[in-house]
Amino acid sequence: MMGPFDAIRPYNDQEVPAVLARLCSDPELLAMLTRYRFPQLTSLFGWMLKPLIGYRLRRELKPIDSVAALQEKIEPYVERAIRRATDGISYSGLERLQAGKSYLFMANHRDIVMDPAFVNYAVYHAGLPTPRIAIGDNLLQRPFVSDLMRLNKSFIVHRSISGRREKLAAFQLLSAYINHSIREEGESIWIAQAEGRAKDGDDRTDSAILKMFHMARKDEPFAEVIGGLGLVPVSISYEYDPCDQAKARELYTRATTGSYTKAPGEDDASIALGITGYKGRVHIAFGEQVDAQWEDAKQVAQEMDRRILGGYRLFPVNYLAYAVWEGREAELNVPEARQLFGVEELAKAEAEWQRRLHSCPVEQRPYLILQYANPVRNQYRIKAELPL
C-alpha cells in the first residue's frame, strides 16, 4: 500500500536489497565506476570491464540488508575521503545533543555533498543516529543517483516544479514529512538554511524554509512548532573551498551579463571536486537549540543567522582575504592575521592564498576574495552588535 510520503522519503530497510540489486545492473552507474576505476582502459575495454565491476559490486553488497549496514559499509570510504582531502576535521557542541532525541539540523551550505556528509560523520562518531538529508531534485536527474541518495537516508525536495499550486502542494508534503519524521518516527533531519550554496560566502537563512516547517501544523502557534522540532543551528567552516574558482567565475558572469547558465554535467563536476578537492581544515559547530520564544519566521531567521555566523570558524585565509577586500568596514576593528596566528601557520596560509589568487583570472579575483572575506565581516558585525 502506498504511503503519503513514498514519493519523497528515503528507502527503508525492507527496500534495500531490491534497490542494491537494481544498482548493480544499472548501465550508467557501471559505466561511471568503470571510468573512475580504469580511466585509461575504458574506451577500448569498457564492454568487458563493466560486467566485472558489476560482479564485484554484487559480491561486496550482498550481505547488506539495512540502511545502517550500508552506512557502516560506506563509513571507511568517507573516512578515506576526509583524510585525503582535509588537514583534519574538528567539532564543537556535540555534547549538547542527547541520545534518544531527534533534531532538525539547519546548516549553512557551501558544498553539495560534503556539508551533510560532515554533519553525518560527526553525529555517527558521537554514537547517535545519522539524520535524514534534504536534497533538491535538481541533483537527482539520473535514476541511479536518486537511488544512491535515498539509500543513504536522503529525502527529496521538489525544486523544479513551476506551477504555484503544485509548489504549494510540494511544500505542504515536505512540511508534513519533516514534522512526521521528527515527531512521530524520532528521526533527525538535516536541511540547508537556504536553497543552493552560498557562493559568495554570505551565509543567510531563508525565512521561507522556516515558514514551510509550520505549514503542516498551521493550527498551532508558530513559536511552539519551531520550539518542538529541536531546531539546531550548524556552522560548517572550510578553510579552503575546492569549488572557489568555479564560484568566482559564476559570480563574475552573473555580475557582468546578468545571468548564468550551467553547462551540462556542471553539478556532477562540482560534486566530484567538492568531495576530492583540498579543503584544509574543517570545523563543524553545533549551536544551542532554538527555543519557542520567537514569534515569526523572520525573527527565527535573524537568530539562526546570528548563531550560524557566530559559530563559523575563521581561518588565517579569511583574514588575509578581508585585508584586501574593497568592502571591508573600518568601524569593525578587524585585527590583522599576524595578530591572531603563529608565524608558521600564517606562512602556510599566505602561500596557499597567493596560489589561489594567481590561479584566478584578474577580473574574477574580487569574487574569490569576497567568498573568504564575507564570513569575517559577518562575524565582526555580530561581535559589534551591528545589524547583519
Results as ranks from 00 to 15, higher is better:
residue 219 D to H: 13
residue 247 K to M: 14
residue 313 R to T: 12
residue 288 E to C: 13
residue 296 D to G: 02
residue 316 P to K: 14
residue 314 L to D: 02
residue 226 I to D: 00
residue 248 A to F: 12
residue 291 D to E: 01
residue 238 Y to P: 08
residue 302 Q to P: 03
residue 244 D to P: 08
residue 285 A to T: 13
residue 309 L to F: 07
residue 279 K to H: 05
residue 249 R to K: 14
residue 213 F to P: 01
residue 266 E to P: 04
residue 319 Y to M: 13
residue 306 R to D: 01
residue 219 D to S: 13
residue 254 R to I: 10
residue 287 G to M: 07
residue 272 A to I: 14
residue 278 Y to V: 03
residue 302 Q to S: 07
residue 321 A to G: 08
residue 266 E to H: 10
residue 303 E to P: 04
residue 284 I to N: 02
residue 247 K to R: 14
residue 255 A to S: 12
residue 237 S to W: 12
residue 227 G to K: 07
residue 287 G to C: 08
residue 290 V to T: 01
residue 314 L to E: 00
residue 244 D to W: 12
residue 325 W to C: 04
residue 283 H to S: 13
residue 319 Y to F: 15
residue 314 L to C: 12
residue 252 Y to S: 14
residue 259 S to R: 11
residue 223 A to M: 01
residue 288 E to A: 06
residue 326 E to K: 15
residue 243 C to P: 04
residue 304 M to C: 13
residue 302 Q to G: 09
residue 219 D to A: 13
residue 208 A to D: 03
residue 281 R to I: 07
residue 237 S to Q: 10
residue 270 S to P: 01
residue 212 M to D: 00
residue 258 G to C: 10
residue 298 K to S: 01
residue 243 C to T: 14
residue 323 A to N: 06
residue 285 A to Y: 01
residue 273 L to W: 05
residue 313 R to W: 09
residue 301 A to W: 04
residue 264 P to H: 05
residue 231 L to T: 00
residue 246 A to K: 12
residue 292 A to H: 08
residue 242 P to N: 07
residue 324 V to K: 11
residue 300 V to W: 02
residue 233 P to T: 12
residue 213 F to L: 14
residue 226 I to Y: 05
residue 260 Y to I: 11
residue 225 V to H: 06
residue 228 G to S: 15
residue 243 C to H: 05
residue 311 G to N: 15
residue 242 P to C: 11
residue 308 I to D: 00
residue 252 Y to E: 11
residue 237 S to D: 04
residue 218 K to C: 04
residue 321 A to Y: 02
residue 257 T to M: 13
residue 225 V to K: 01
residue 310 G to S: 09
residue 230 G to V: 02
residue 261 T to R: 09
residue 270 S to M: 05
residue 309 L to W: 10
residue 325 W to M: 08
residue 285 A to E: 06
residue 261 T to K: 11
residue 301 A to I: 03
residue 227 G to C: 06
residue 209 I to G: 06
residue 275 I to Y: 11
residue 283 H to D: 04
residue 312 Y to I: 07
residue 209 I to S: 11
residue 317 V to L: 07
residue 265 G to H: 06
residue 304 M to P: 04
residue 279 K to I: 08
residue 285 A to R: 15
residue 233 P to W: 11
residue 278 Y to S: 07
residue 317 V to A: 05
residue 303 E to N: 03
residue 247 K to L: 10
residue 283 H to Y: 14
residue 220 E to C: 05
residue 315 F to P: 10
residue 299 Q to W: 08
residue 323 A to F: 03
residue 307 R to E: 02
residue 291 D to V: 07
residue 226 I to G: 03
residue 215 M to T: 02
residue 269 A to M: 15
residue 305 D to I: 06
residue 210 L to Q: 04
residue 278 Y to W: 08
residue 246 A to C: 11
residue 282 V to A: 06
residue 234 V to K: 00
residue 232 V to W: 03
residue 289 Q to C: 03
residue 321 A to M: 08
residue 273 L to H: 10
residue 319 Y to L: 10
